[in-house]
Amino acid sequence: MTEYKLVVVGAGGVGKSALTIQLIQNHFVDEYDPTIEDSYRKQVVIDGETCLLDILDTAGQEEYSAMRDQYMRTGEGFLCVFAINNTKSFEDIHHYREQIKRVKDSEDVPMVLVGNKCDLPSRTVDTKQAQDLARSYGIPFIETSAKTRQGVDDAFYTLVREIRKHKEKMSKDGKKKKKKSKTKCVIM
């Protein structure tokens, strides 16, 4: 069974824990209790493949930012979460993405942009803004509501699919490099 290491990042209060708990335990946590770091595991079937999701729910508070490099190193894919009623959390996505790329030393890291709290009427981040940002990053965008469960499975499952595509691409690139290195030079 394939294991996928997913990391949920975003500013404090955007609903990272609520999304994760909704996926794992099928219930909505409405009281806000700032996370330092929590880890969850769940076995699911995605596109006919049974897999184990190892999900790291991270601290959004700035005082825990020193811990970010460590979990970013171990993560295979990242859910970059903002709240649709919090423009600052949307603007912060850029910083999370840049930090992930720096730590992973790669421009090509599996990510999904997630606009959470889409059940709320007080939207300050337009869907088109988020779609445009995701398009500019070359990553999928999904709106979710941890409260109603809308888009929750889709967000995590899409990230797994992005990781699969990335692994497939990397193995193809690896095979191309191996083929090239088999060419021999004969000096007579």
Rank of each mutant, 00 (worst) to 15 (best):
D54H: 02
V7G: 09
T20C: 12
I55V: 08
E98T: 03
K176W: 05
V125I: 11
V112G: 02
A11T: 12
Q22S: 07
I84C: 13
I36F: 09
I84G: 14
L19W: 03
K178S: 07
D57K: 00
G115N: 06
Y4D: 04
I100V: 12
D38H: 01
L120W: 12
K184Q: 14
L159W: 05
Y64I: 14
Q22P: 00
M67V: 06
N26C: 15
D154Q: 09
K147R: 12
T124R: 10
D126P: 09
V160Y: 09
D69E: 09
G77S: 07
F90A: 15
C185I: 08
T124Y: 11
M188S: 14
A11P: 11
G48C: 05
E98W: 01
D105I: 14
K172Y: 14
T35R: 00
H166P: 07
C80F: 14
E76T: 13
K177L: 11
G12E: 05
V29G: 02
A155R: 04
Q99V: 11
Q150E: 04
H166I: 09
V112H: 01
I36R: 00
A18D: 01
Q43D: 01
Y32A: 00
E3Q: 05
I21H: 12
A155G: 13
E49P: 06
S136K: 08
D30W: 07
F82L: 08
K184M: 03
I93N: 08
N86S: 08
E63T: 08
T183L: 06
F78C: 01
H166T: 12
Y4L: 13
E37L: 00
Y4T: 14
I84K: 12
F28W: 07
D54Y: 07
I139D: 01
E98S: 10
A146Y: 02
S65K: 02
H95P: 05
D154G: 08
R73W: 07
I187C: 15
F82W: 11
D154V: 07
T124H: 10
A155W: 02
T183D: 14
L79N: 04
T35H: 00
N86M: 02
D69Q: 03
G174Y: 15
D33E: 03
T35Y: 01
Y4G: 04
D132V: 07
D47H: 07
E98N: 11
C80R: 02
Y32W: 13
T127G: 10
V44R: 02
Y71I: 15
D154F: 08
M67I: 09
G60P: 01
V81Y: 05
D126N: 09
I100T: 06
G48T: 11
I139Y: 15
D126F: 09
G15K: 03
F82T: 06
E37P: 02
E37M: 00
R149E: 07
I36Y: 01
M67L: 04
K128Q: 11
K167F: 07
E62P: 08
I21Q: 08
E76L: 05
V152I: 09
V186C: 13
V9Y: 07
Q43C: 01
D69T: 05
G77Q: 06
R73H: 07
K101N: 06
A59V: 14
K104L: 14
F156E: 08
D105S: 11
K169V: 05
Y71Q: 15
V112M: 11
S171R: 03
Y4E: 07
P121Q: 11
N26R: 03
D92A: 10
Y64G: 13
E37F: 00
A18S: 05
I36S: 00
V44A: 08
I139M: 07
V44S: 07
P121F: 10
I46D: 06
E98R: 09
Y32C: 01
Y32H: 07
Q43E: 02
Q129I: 07
L19A: 14
I93T: 14
N26Y: 15
D38S: 01
V45P: 02
C118N: 12
Y32P: 00
D38G: 00
A11S: 09
Y157C: 10
A11G: 07
E49H: 11
T20G: 13
V160E: 08
K176S: 13
L53F: 08
D47Q: 05
T50I: 04
V44P: 01
Y64P: 05
K16H: 01
L23D: 02
R41Q: 04
V44E: 01
K178M: 06
Q131L: 09
K177R: 08
T2M: 11
L23C: 14
L56W: 10
G151R: 10
K167W: 10
Y40L: 02
V103L: 05
L159I: 08
T87E: 14
R73Y: 10
V81I: 11
S145V: 07
E107K: 12
V114I: 09
I187S: 11
T183N: 15
H166M: 05
G115D: 07
K5D: 14
V114Q: 03
Y32G: 00
E37K: 02
Q43G: 01
R164L: 06
D154L: 09
T2I: 07
K42Y: 03
L56Q: 01
T35F: 00
Q131H: 08
C51L: 04
Y96A: 09
T20L: 13
V8P: 02
D132Q: 08
M111V: 10
E49M: 13
D173S: 11
K176E: 13
I55Q: 00
V125F: 09
K128W: 08
Y71G: 14
K172C: 12
E107G: 11
K128E: 11
V14A: 11
L113H: 07
K117R: 13
I187R: 15
K177N: 10
S122P: 09
T158C: 05
K169D: 08
S136A: 12
L23E: 15
D173G: 12
T58I: 05
C51A: 10
S122A: 10
D33K: 03
G77E: 02
S106M: 14
E107N: 12
Y137S: 14
R68G: 15
G75P: 12
L53E: 05
H95R: 13
V81G: 07
P121V: 10
R135I: 14
Q131M: 11
K167L: 12
C51G: 09
L113G: 02
T50Q: 02
R68S: 15
I36D: 00
C185S: 13
L19S: 13
K5T: 13
T124Q: 11
L159G: 05
Q131R: 13
H95D: 12
L53C: 07
D153F: 03
I100C: 09
K42A: 08
E31P: 01
M111A: 02
I84T: 14
V29I: 07
V109A: 10
I36V: 00
D153G: 06
I93M: 15
E162V: 05
M72W: 05
D38N: 03
L56N: 01
K175N: 04
C118P: 05
D119T: 08
T50F: 02
G15T: 03
A155D: 03
S39E: 04
A11W: 08
K178P: 14
D108C: 08
R41M: 06
L113M: 10
D173Y: 07
V8M: 13
Y40R: 01
G48S: 10
E98K: 03
D154Y: 08
F78H: 14
D47V: 02
T127Y: 08
F156R: 00
Y137K: 08
Y32L: 01
R41H: 03
A130S: 08
D119V: 03
M188V: 09
K178G: 13
Q61K: 01
S136C: 13
A130F: 12
R164F: 12
V7T: 04
K167G: 10
E91V: 02
S181C: 09
I139W: 06
L23Y: 13
V44Q: 10
Y157N: 12
L23A: 12
S39M: 08
C51Y: 11
K5C: 06
Q25K: 12
L79S: 02
R73N: 11
V14E: 13
Y137H: 08
K178N: 09
I21G: 05
K101R: 11
G75F: 15
D47Y: 05
D154M: 09
Y157V: 11
N116H: 14
A155P: 07
T2N: 12
E63Q: 02
R164N: 08
Y4I: 09
K165Q: 10
I187Y: 15
K42N: 06
K169R: 08
R73E: 10
V8W: 02
V186L: 12
R73M: 09
D119L: 03
G60H: 08
G174K: 15
D108K: 09
D30V: 06
N26D: 03
G12W: 04
Q131N: 10
K175G: 13
S122H: 10
